[in-house]
Design a protein around this nucleic acid. Structure first.
Lengths: 142, 142
DNA sequence: CATGGGGGCTCCAGCAGCTGTAGGTTCAAG
DNA sequence: CTTGAACCTACAGCTGCTGGAGCCCCCATG
């Protein structure tokens, strides 16, 4: 099942992304240039499809293209210890945790904002007021 | 304390953003053009500083510039009912909840990935493996 | 074997939301 | 009056794609 070749459109459908995205990844050197037909159309092997899957799955997990580039380089050298890969993942985990915390704080603030404001005029609207006034800010670090 | 004027740099320091960001907001019409000195430098009033605070705080809360533009327009017409402001905030709340859910799922997946991989070779590294293999994907919707 | 249409190709512009640089001017402290 | 930090404009660049124009290829059907 590795000898199969896919057109760029088939590949895009398979991994769930746009054709242009694949060409973009190739352009920025994240995917190697695939073989071409005599008519200059790209044909992808199972190998290349797996590499793209890796990238897409990584993107779904929120990794940056740069982080994925590093991970791909690591994946190409399977004999080395995987500390670096771990570090990338861990850094990413910390980042995600920070984002969750931040978003949770925002959620509370928004809920308060909305609850306090029902059917009034803008003059007394908490949404506007809270946004105007830093005193109401929960995570006040400005 | 409203009669004070600030240079663009002072304002930037006060609200915690870059000078260029302020000029950018002016350029896209989010902030009105401020008064200038004879030497063509911008001078900001307390009014204008508050408007910028509003924008920055909104950005911190994850509102898009477009949503903030709408909210600013509402804030400029305080006699109208605030349903629209509410709707914007509510739509945004739903969005934030979705983002939290999504990030929480990613967090679990990353934690599993990292925990299973300690001091091995890349050959057996879960981080690479999980990203390569869709079978390990928790939220498998591809 | 011709043809039509769906997909492929390249190149380029644009999106949000800034950020950085170049090259010049102004302001205020000393 | 000098100096140097901060200001000015204009424009390019960043991430991660997405869409369009204008052309070309592939293959199923007649």
């Amino acid at each position: 099942m590795d000898g199969q070749t896919l057109t760029i459109g088939e590949l895009a459908r398979k991994v769930g992304c746009k054709v242009q995205t694949i060409r973009y990844y190739e352009q920025i050197g994240l995917l190697p240039p695939p073989d071409r037909t005599d008519g200059n159309q790209r044909r992808y092997s199972g190998q290349e499809a797996r590499r793209l899957s890796f990238v897409r799955h990584g993107r779904d997990l929120g990794f940056s293209l740069d982080a994925l580039r590093q991970l791909l380089m690591l994946a190409d050298h399977p004999d080395q210890p995987c500390e670096t890969a771990d570090q990338i993942a861990e850094r990413h985990l910390i980042d995600i945790e920070r984002r969750i915390d931040r978003l949770s704080a925002l959620k509370v603030e928004l809920q308060v904002m909305i609850k306090q404001c029902r059917g009034n005029e803008i003059r007394s609207c908490r949404v506007i007021e809270v946004l105007s006034d830093h005193g109401h800010c929960l995570n006040d670090q400005h």
